[in-house]
């Protein structure tokens, strides 16, 4: 028995059918074909599946697809488009550009989740200290980088975003996050 799930994904309306027990991460990957979001565990520890839901980072393996009904999801594929073109770096979100520049990834498997978590972190805390970044990334595991260059990348992105006067999560996702924070429906 499948149900239809309608939601907004990366700014576009999306729809697909899923079993009620289908996790959001599998819906994104298998039904919508957005394979940038990864699955690294079965106990909600690794953070590889992190996406933005109404502008806030969530582990998409902790939600059912049906729970995302009517809400706005941003995946790594839509990260750059959260910002106006002038706030992007070589067409990328400043976080993506900084991960590239600072060698914040090796195998890349954790990277989409790291980027989404970092975007949420910087949208709440535009000028985090090194310790705050490390703490902010506690829910995301990386086995390759030792985290050092990830932390450096987040710092660099924070600087650039501040210099550009841009929010890490912009556009509709930011509006949704604001509305959600005030308890209103997005």
């Amino acid at each position: 028995m499948e149900v239809t799930v309608r939601l907004t994904v990366n700014g576009q309306p999306a729809e697909g059918s899923a079993e009620p027990r289908t996790l959001l991460v599998h819906f994104l990957r298998d039904t919508l074909g957005l394979t940038g979001t990864h699955v690294g565990c079965d106990t909600s520890q690794c953070g590889a599946c992190t996406v933005l839901l109404d502008g806030r980072a969530v582990k998409s393996c902790t939600l059912l697809a049906v729970q995302a009904e009517g809400r706005a999801v941003t995946t790594v594929e839509g990260l750059a488009a959260l910002l106006p073109p002038e706030a992007r770096v070589e067409g990328l979100h400043p976080l993506q550009a900084a991960f590239w520049e600072k060698h914040g990834l090796q195998c890349g498997f954790c990277t989409p989740g790291m980027l989404m978590t970092a975007a949420d972190l910087l949208s709440r805390k535009p000028d985090p200290s090194e310790a705050e970044i490390r703490e902010g990334l506690e829910g995301n595991l990386c086995r390759c980088t030792g985290y050092q260059n990830i932390v450096a990348a987040v710092r660099l992105a924070a600087e650039r975003l501040r210099a550009a006067g841009a929010a890490a999560v912009g556009g509709e996702a930011a509006l949704a996050a604001g509305a959600a924070a005030q308890g209103g429906a997005p």
Binding site: D30, G33, T35, H38, E77, L79, Q96, W100, L105
Partner: peptide, 21 residues
């Protein structure tokens, strides 16, 4: 040099085995 492999990895356009359908 920054890595040549990164653009696909940071944008979700890489293909890992489980991404194949």
């Amino acid at each position: 040099l920054r890595r040549k492999e990164d653009p696909r990895l940071i944008t979700g356009h890489a293909t890992y085995t489980d991404d194949i359908r």
